[in-house]
Design a binder for these strands. Structure first.
Lengths: 362, 362
DNA sequence: CTGAAAGCGCTTACAG
DNA sequence: CTGAAAGCGCTTACAG
């Protein structure tokens, strides 16, 4: 009855069910009501099941002009934050039959050089996270694909939607926590990365400290590695008077700050407090465990994919409270979703020492 | 001249260059020598460049029956080891115009339930890493796609190729290092994960210890988290006589072991040595830094993708020393590549204490 | 309610 | 060396 070759096609299913190829498509896409008799519909489903039929995605893409594939652009996947982001994105995508292709952008983003490097051209949309300030412009080179930005400047909006984490609130919680403990001399171990998310951290820290009437924080930029965080923290701790708390842009930097403190014979948190950002698994692997801001990375990825699906008009996506607004994005400013964050208070923060020891110099 | 609609097609390029559509394809696929005159070839290239032509991948896939997409199946991408593996895979894939789709398999692997959940059906091959012993069988459900296994039992071979890390050698190096330092009572904090890679670690540790004439290692299984590693290590350190070294299957577990030791008032490495496996960034974020086995995850991913490309007969792939063996895999046992690993000796190991303190009990 | 046809954009035999 | 045609498998108007 069936030729035993490779994958069955809709033609094979049609033959097995005794219907036309068109009927197979209508039934399996659930568009058959009033167009195919219930009996034939059931026959199609049975035949499809028995043959193990799965539609050829290439053929469908060609016909529909859509690929059910989204591109996720992140700075680096080896960072656990982005791995979590991806997990959320991929989960929601899978729920809607979408695939996610990753583009870890080491530095610049541009169109493919060779015209045949086009595996990535088969896209319905792009989700980009934590990009450098001017990166979105480059992303537009990829045609007129719908773009959703994550953790990025909301104004700079070629994006159809933006999903942000409440970074500013997180930083304010860090500062409030440290001020509550009695700290007055904060230093900032700042990620030396040109992106909106780190700009916000720096600006918010400075504002919050100023609002409290304290001296501006000593700032030391650092690459996003433990080793460079250690170096930057060593410099910060060499200042006179020495800061009593190191506010770090990231848990990796906080780990480096802890190493720096111990290298100078200072105890964390008794002699110096350290805070992180992200709440990676690293935060609770360290000792003492890090006081840090938990960022809901997976939720952000999921929300970003939902926003993209809504822009694409994919059914069942973007339902917020039952108000069917799928695809309603033409005109008007792009919508911005901001996810709340929470401070996780752990062992790396404590009141400042009563009589701070003076550093060796001068 | 050109209609200003969406993307240009090969037809548009043909019109602009004054040639047939077929000539465009031949030129851009570099199969034109002796079939198209050099002048026309150049005209095609110029027109393609000017129009920004990029071939439609869906059309190409439909025609060729191949998609230039590989599936990477890993247990969890939030583990840095697999993130690195992915980076290597994606890099090599991109060099050959391939895309990589990720399948983080929380548990089981099976065919899509719904026939229209078929985004993942557009695949040329599968790379699966560190699977449970019986998982490959399930993978075959996906049709007759070429399969490359990473970090997996080489015998169980439905796989066209296997790329392994020399896990056994790594474990032997750990044991030799600890024996050299004078340790005789080792405990094993073992990952409670049913996979070949952890079986090998357990077996090799037991063998190496026996070969040295020591008592069999006390073994405590643990989930692959810092918290559970702490619990397991607390149990191991409660034994009498107490082990002087904790051999951990993973850096996360080693971090947990360090926390357990300190919770008991024991210093690492003075009172107890701890070793890890993987050399994640966590290994040098901790203090003391972990002695651990560096696994070349990115290289493994890259080698796996190269092996898959060779099986697929993709030109330029799989060149090993210039012997063009691409695609030469029919018959014979699947080939196994084993990548060397290296012990990174750092601060978490030292000679055992002279007079080991007895634990409280009894 | 059902069937036959067109066409998405590409690549590859096949005639000239 | 060049051109016209077939066909990959699907979905969607369009006639009956």
């Amino acid at each position: 009855m069936t030729t035993d070759r490779s994958r069955p096609t809709s033609r094979d299913v049609a033959r097995a069910a005794g219907v036309s190829q068109a009927a197979v498509s209508l039934v399996l896409r659930d568009k058959w009501r009033g167009r195919v008799s219930p009996g034939k519909a059931e026959a199609v489903r049975a035949a499809a099941r028995e043959l193990g039929y799965r539609p050829n995605p290439a053929a469908r893409s060609l016909r529909l002009g859509r690929t059910r594939t989204a591109l996720l652009v992140v700075p680096a996947l080896t960072n656990e934050f982005f791995a979590r982001l991806h997990a959320g994105t991929a989960r929601v995508a899978a729920e809607h039959g979408f695939g996610v292709v990753l583009y870890p952008s080491p530095e610049g983003i541009g169109p493919a050089r060779d015209p045949f490097d086009s595996a990535s051209a088969a896209l319905d949309g792009v989700i980009a996270s934590s990009m450098a300030s001017e990166a979105p412009a480059a992303l537009r080179a990829d045609g007129d694909l719908p773009l959703v930005m994550l953790d990025s400047e909301p104004e700079r909006t070629q994006a159809a939607a933006t999903v942000n984490l409440d970074i500013a609130d997180g930083m304010r919680q860090v500062v409030a926590h440290l001020l509550d403990l009695g700290h007055r001399r904060l230093a900032h171990i700042a990620a030396a990365v040109d992106s909106w998310t780190f700009e916000v951290r720096a600006r918010t820290l400075a504002e919050a400290v100023r609002a409290a009437g304290c001296a501006p924080p000593l700032t030391r930029p650092s690459a996003l590695t433990v080793a460079d965080g250690t170096r930057a923290a060593l410099e910060a701790l060499a200042a006179d008077p020495r800061p009593t708390a190191l506010v770090c842009d990231d848990d990796l930097l906080a780990a480096g700050a802890c190493k720096a403190a111990r290298r100078l014979g200072l105890r964390v948190p008794e002699d110096v407090s350290v805070t992180g950002f992200d709440d990676l698994s690293l935060a609770t692997a360290l000792e003492p465990e890090l006081t840090t801001v938990r960022l809901p990375a997976e939720e952000a990825g999921a929300a970003g994919m939902r926003a993209l699906l809504a822009v694409l008009g994919v059914e069942g996506a973007g339902d917020r409270g039952g108000v069917g607004t799928g695809g309603d994005v033409s005109g008007g400013p792009a919508e911005v979703t901001t996810l709340p964050v929470a401070l996780a208070v752990r062992g790396s923060t404590a009141p400042p020492p009563r009589t701070p020891a003076r550093p060796g110099g001068r």
